Amino acid sequence: MFNILVTKELPGDWLGLLGKECKIDLWKDVYPPPKQCLMQHIKDKDGALVTLTEKIDKEIIDVASKLKVISTYSVGYDHIDVRYAISKGIIITYTPEVLTEATADLIFGLILASARRIAEGDRVIRKGQWNTPWYPTFMLGREVFGKTIGIIGMGRIGKAVLRRAKGFSMRVVYYSRERHNVDAEYLNLDELLKTSDFVIVSAELNELTYHMINEDKLRLMKKDSFLINASRGKIVDEKALIKALTEGWIAGAGLDVFENEPLPRDSKLVNLENVVLTPHLGSATVETRERMAEIATKNLLLALKGEKPIYEVRF
């Protein structure tokens, strides 16, 4: 049997499937294992099934002398030193595609919640502050239908957002490292920011996209525009965004990801009314999370047996 480490409980019965062919060392806490604990448990393993909260760096890889595969239960793999792992002969697998539609749904939820002040309205009622039945200027928001949406990154999720935007008769513009054959207009990043009513961050995190949306870029956006990020928190300079929201450079934001997660309780974002915050819920549907578990376990088993995984990270 293969000797494997699994760093989280998984939905469905996929650990049962793994248990038929592997001896499982399972970390049962919802919190990620401390680094020293992770190093201790991974050193004799043939494979590891991890999540985005476990940082698999060079030091961890070096102690895992028997490791053949790291299967990550995520579409992103920036938490793994992928290049170094591959150089050591370790296969890296991931779970793209399956979470595309769920994440695009959430992005549109953030668009609507931000523009129409849905979360803010909910708070008004819960706090007992709805004192007048109705009047013409009460809690005015912005329309979404027919507006311009700018998508940064035209991968799977970007294309899924585009399809939804067409249902709202929106003009779609996009910026990406390369042009795509899509029903949208390509613009450079600065023009996209100047043009869009809703700016959607759907790029992957790497050395080029880290703090791509910084103070200079935020100042280019329209004062009545919204920034939506359900990709990776570190693509947006959070301090600059707080300044933009506080000083009114933009109208608002919808954020599912943050530079540090969980978001610190003393973050200034928490006290801003013009931002909608969700705790990294992009893929958080029953259907998607169970499918991710299926893909992650199958990736792991296939790689351990010397067969081709369903999704492998390659450079």
Rank of each mutant, 00 (worst) to 15 (best):
F2H: 12
N3C: 02
E9K: 13
D13R: 12
G19E: 14
I24R: 09
L26H: 05
L26Q: 06
W27P: 12
D29Q: 12
D29P: 03
V30S: 14
V30I: 11
P32F: 05
P33L: 15
H41Y: 14
H41F: 14
K43R: 14
K43T: 04
D44F: 08
D46M: 08
D46Q: 08
G47Y: 09
T51Y: 12
T53K: 12
I60V: 14
I60H: 01
V63N: 11
A64P: 10
V69A: 11
I70V: 15
T72I: 13
T72G: 13
S74T: 11
G76Y: 08
H79S: 10
I80A: 06
V82W: 03
I86A: 12
I86R: 08
S87N: 15
G89V: 10
I91K: 15
P96F: 13
E97G: 04
L99C: 08
E101C: 02
A104K: 03
F108E: 00
F108G: 04
S114C: 09
I118F: 00
G128V: 03
G128R: 00
W130C: 05
T132D: 06
P133S: 10
T137Y: 10
T137R: 10
L140H: 01
R142G: 00
I149R: 01
I149K: 00
G153D: 09
G155T: 04
R156A: 14
V161M: 07
M170L: 08
M170D: 01
R171D: 15
V173Q: 05
S176C: 07
E178G: 15
H180P: 05
N181A: 13
N181I: 01
V182Q: 08
E185R: 10
E185W: 04
L187P: 05
N188L: 01
L189M: 09
E191M: 11
E191F: 03
S196C: 00
S196Y: 04
D197I: 02
V199C: 08
V199A: 07
N206P: 08
T209M: 07
N214I: 11
K217Y: 07
I228C: 07
I228W: 05
K234M: 14
V236E: 13
D237H: 11
D237L: 10
I242Y: 02
T246G: 14
T246K: 14
I250C: 09
P262Q: 02
S267R: 02
K268W: 00
L272Q: 03
V276C: 00
P279K: 02
H280F: 10
T285S: 15
V286G: 04
A293T: 01
E294L: 12
K298F: 09
L304I: 04
G306N: 07
I310L: 15
Y311K: 04
